[in-house]
């Protein structure tokens, strides 16, 4: 697998990263180097091996359906939640108009 200039430009656009043409040109060989390095894993025969989903043997824990059981991860924190917002008005986040 390898990427070209257009693919890198598209990935950058999807990730909302502003990358100049010169930077993209430099990135193409770098990314291809990384991809080639990772691709070496494809040389290992994994026939019959279950895909590994996590490095630690562990089960997903489920939470009971209780409101604000843990105050740290509960609601009712409007001021905290809005504290870093560039614009907060009437309890809302204000963002540049995004109407269709």
């Amino acid at each position: 697998m390898s990427v070209d200039t257009a693919t890198v430009a598209k990935i950058a656009a999807l990730a909302r990263l502003k990358v100049s043409e010169a930077e993209i040109a430099a990135m193409v060989p770098e990314l291809n180097g990384i991809l080639a390095w990772v691709e070496q894993l494809g040389e290992v025969d994994v026939t019959g091996v279950e895909p590994m989903t996590a490095v630690i043997e562990n089960k997903l824990r489920l939470r009971e359906d209780v409101i604000d059981a843990d105050p740290l991860t509960g609601g009712g924190k409007r001021d905290d939640v809005l504290a870093n917002a560039p614009a907060a008005e009437h309890g809302f986040f204000g963002v540049p108009k995004v109407i269709e």
Partner: peptide, 16 residues
């Protein structure tokens, strides 16, 4: 753990 009830004050049912 934040609540799901409809019609609450804006951003009052938002956890971190």
């Amino acid at each position: 753990g934040s609540a799901t009830a409809f019609g609450a004050e804006p951003n009052s049912q938002v956890s971190l």
